[in-house]
Design a protein around this nucleic acid. Structure first.
Lengths: 202, 202
DNA sequence: CCGGAAACAGACTATTTAGTATGCTTCACA
DNA sequence: TGTGAAGCATACTAAATAGTCTGTTTCCGG
């Protein structure tokens, strides 16, 4: 079981993440977090050196959680089918299913949020985001590589291009879902991408 | 010719927009703008009631400029071809061409930026963003409607779905372009979307 | 059960930042 | 050419906000 301190730290991180997604990092004050967690200054600065330290921790936590999630989807998809095309399609559907179950408040992507105020962060934070996005892309790319080998696509297309495309669609989807207050937006776009794949590979 | 005051106001708006895209709205201070424009408090508050007023003005200016740009691309595309498919493809290429010529600092979308700190803004600002996005989508959607009527797609797809898809790809493209510091990202994704259309309608 | 460290509370400080008050300068035009 | 308004400068105020300091409570191993 996590110690008391680790639990509070986690509560702070959770509050910080959701507040960041609503107000941006610069727009989030430490008092916002204290209010959300019913803690005090002393508690906060016991766990984090300063606000930048918190920002970094939120980022790393988000990256790790998301990577775990995607690896899980990937494993499950690979267990559910042997066909490379089906594996990709199931992987995408698992992600859509996950989004369906989330409900409000609709989530967002910390990478995108931080990128929209990139000048607030140090170089290494931006590098970390780049690397995380590369890792994300890598998972997709590997799937598309085996897919392209197994099923020749109708027109010439690389695994990397497809990986970047679904990444783009997901990031864009989160924005539009929030902007239009329409929780189904991202899923719909993911489905549209599946159509494209079906057209390409069948 | 624009009066002196109008020129200053425009300079402030321009500085505010680019600063917002780099640091977010909350992360941008009025002093940032004064430094960028070599103006003073007195000048700023002569033109804008407060910071929220500035935010609103930046938004409206961005929306108007972008709408003008898109309508221009649309008109030019319609003059360059009679075929509905070609018109859409040319329209997309004109946008890609425009992005190519922009150079650094790579631009972004104020709609997306504001959405990432939506809680900072009043209800009507969010409504305005929604409406602007709808207007954007409308331009695309109209093109896809005539396209679908003229060329039956390989699989069933609505004009609205395609319009939402390119919107998503563009928004996502801007984020990834900035996150990965790769100015070609958005164009590459737009090209990928053109492939999809070609596959669908030819 | 005790001693020290981890965990937390709350008052306080320094700085940043939006916004104001007042006055000076430039410009259109009667 | 004078006059009022638009345009702008600068010193100032009040509030917000990150971070500190000191002290108290809780926990946990010896």
């Amino acid at each position: 079981m996590a110690s008391k301190g680790e639990q509070t730290r986690e509560r702070i991180l959770e509050a910080a993440q959701s507040t960041t997604l609503e107000k941006g990092f610069a727009g989030m004050t430490i008092d916002d977090i204290l209010e959300a967690t019913a803690l005090t200054k002393g508690a906060f600065f016991h766990h984090f050196k300063n606000k930048a330290d918190l920002g970094r921790a939120v980022l790393e936590r988000f990256a790790q959680n998301d990577l775990d999630l995607f690896n899980d989807f990937s494993d499950r998809a690979d267990r559910l089918s042997d066909d490379p095309l089906e594996r990709v399609l199931i992987f995408l559907r698992l992600f859509e299913e996950y989004l369906d179950d989330l409900g409000t408040p609709y989530p967002g992507c910390i990478f995108a949020s931080y990128t929209h105020e990139a000048k607030q962060f140090s170089e290494d934070v931006q590098d970390y985001i780049e690397q995380s996005l590369d890792a994300w892309r890598g998972i997709y790319e590997a799937k598309f590589e085996t897919l392209i080998e197994a099923h020749p696509p109708k027109i010439e297309v690389t695994a990397r291009e497809l990986a970047e495309m679904i990444l783009t669609i997901n990031e864009g989807g989160f924005i539009l879902a929030n902007a239009k207050d329409d929780a189904t937006w991202t899923q719909r776009q993911s489905r549209e991408f599946r159509r494209y794949l079906t057209l390409l590979f069948s």
